[in-house]
Design a protein around this nucleic acid. Structure first.
Lengths: 334, 334
DNA sequence: TTGTAAGCGTTATCAC
DNA sequence: GTGATAACGCTTACAA
């Protein structure tokens, strides 16, 4: 494999390699030489080797992106947004898929820490002490997506209010027996904040929180199915269910339908996510739309800003973007 | 940002940097020194700079992955498979999202060609002359996923037979008026091969192909909706529809349901994809399951093999993997 | 088994 | 405006 390098180009153009380098970078070259060089470079399709450049300048034009599970609708849309944005500036992205393993998150933070990337965009599910301690030791920009955090620039969703609004929607329709299906509160956004929204909405309407109406599982349809079964087989049965994710809700709907309950006549159901599924189930699921692609774009944008402060990365830039949400009111509630 | 380098480590360990390098690579070091070095490296958390290494060895431990649209279920699962597989061997992946633009495919092939990666995994929708010409000029391994090609190792789906089997399923149920909703034949796998399967299935059963039953659109639900409308508003109406993708089929189902047709009583429908959607629509969609994650894993596996022939990359290794499919017979056909 | 020194392809410094 | 030359951090002959 013959690599044509800057020296070859210099020879062909009859100048020194410094001049070629200047042509490529600051552009400080006479018009005469500029033309000659341009011609040579076009005809040879020469591209500077990025590793050599990186070694010298410590700039890689690579952004490390850590995602919990690339094969989810959420993560893949976020990645799409990041990719669209940073590629405008000549950056590429290095994907680290953690398969929801915290150990792998730490591992990839470590890997990215030492080399290879100019910045990290971390799509987080939780930020433990361990996360924060290694993140603090990283000397280049980190942007967090999907969790709110004091310590880093971040793009997050308004989980508390989305959840609260959704539950208020049910309350406004007169519902008082509203069950909640959630996930572990270690997941601050989905587990903790959405639960808080649920509780506060009830409080605001003077409805007392009932332990039997509160269930916790994982993100799967199965989990939704099982927990709906639990809910409907206890003495006190809800007349509405709010699930923290579409998958859970759809799983629950499946149980309800299997058991002959009519949605929304017998029971209402809603959730958060606006997944493709939510739009094709019967009845169509009432849910909250989150702007995942936008989240990725904004995250990429912040990263580009941070990297642009060529006076060196300033820890002072702490942009935090609350992305909001849009209620998608469809036919699963009454 | 202070970078601790191999020289520092060498000083601390009281040996030369060559010894450190050997410790890190071939391991040709005395036990005494090995222990000393190990201690130093652990206490300093030293990691060799990969760009310096890459510059010297021409090995980057990076695989470029080109996908048509990362936010689709298909692509994101393929990427997950690739990532899982190659990360076992210490490789990372660089994602290029082309947003279905052929120009961008070419652009990224060019970018990856010149530097940066040890191999390319290309999830292709079509392979034009332009693609092949630049691919031929690339001197390191390329693996193609989702299209069958003579020139490169590839992992592909059996589109012809999946399609044929699906249509035969309808024929076996006694259907004779079977419509087809496809996409452009430039997409060899989805457009051309699946159409061929449809036609040959009909032929095998002595059913004549009718122009009015053949529709072509894009991959969207909208397209399915509109083309179903066309089909049902012409003189000759089908009693069954085979769509080349789940999205198209679900769009069509929506039209049919909106118009009061009963599925499968009035009309049967099936497709290929086994997307999440297909499992939650009513009735559940009969479709063919493709092993996307496996495709990614196999693609990664082939790449690792190609890269392992450390006698240099041999163009002779031409593994081609036909992944098969599994029919998911559900309630949308009768 | 170890150390010395050259070299990978760039950019940065400095003198001209 | 330009060209030598050193330097980035690592691997790898080669010599010891």
């Amino acid at each position: 494999m013959i690599i044509i390098n800057i020296i070859e180009i210099a020879k062909l153009a009859g100048v020194s390699k410094s001049t070629i380098s200047r042509y490529l970078n600051d552009g400080y070259v006479s018009d005469k030489n500029r033309l000659k060089i341009q011609k040579i470079i076009n005809s040879t399709a020469y591209k500077p080797l990025c590793h050599a450049k990186a070694l010298r300048t410590k700039i890689t034009n690579l952004i490390g992106v850590i995602v919990p599970k690339i094969s989810t609708e959420t993560a893949s849309r976020v990645v799409e947004g990041i990719s669209n944005e940073v590629s405008k500036y000549g950056y590429d992205i290095l994907i680290a898929n953690t398969n929801l393993s915290v150990d792998k998150e730490i591992k990839y933070l470590e890997i990215f820490k030492n080399n290879q990337v100019d910045g990290i965009i971390f799509m987080a599910t939780k930020l433990t002490e361990k996360h924060l301690s290694i993140m603090d030791s990283i000397e280049f920009p980190i942007v967090v997506i999907a969790q709110k955090t004091e310590n880093y620039p971040c793009v997050y969703y308004d989980d508390y209010n989305a959840s609260k609004d959704m539950v208020k929607l049910l309350l406004n329709k007169g519902h008082r027996e509203i069950a909640f299906i959630g996930v572990t509160e270690e997941d601050i956004s989905v587990g903790f904040e959405r639960k808080r929204g649920y509780i506060d909405a009830l409080k605001e309407y003077g409805v007392s929180y009932k332990e039997e109406f509160f269930k916790k599982g994982d993100f799967s349809m199965d989990s939704g199915y099982k927990l709906a079964a639990e809910l409907m087989n206890q003495n006190e049965k809800p007349k509405a269910i709010f699930a923290v994710s579409d998958s859970i809700a759809v799983g629950a709907m499946q149980y309800l339908t299997d058991m002959g309950y009519k949605i929304p006549e017998d029971i209402s159901i809603c959730s958060i996510g606006d997944s493709k599924m939510s739009r094709v189930v019967t009845p169509k699921l009432t849910t909250a739309h989150y702007f995942h692609k936008t989240a990725g774009e904004k995250g990429g944008e912040i990263m580009m800003e941070l990297l642009n402060k060529n006076s060196g990365y300033s820890k002072k830039i702490m942009k935090k973007i609350n992305l909001g949400y849009r209620l998608e009111i469809r036919n699963s509630i009454k």
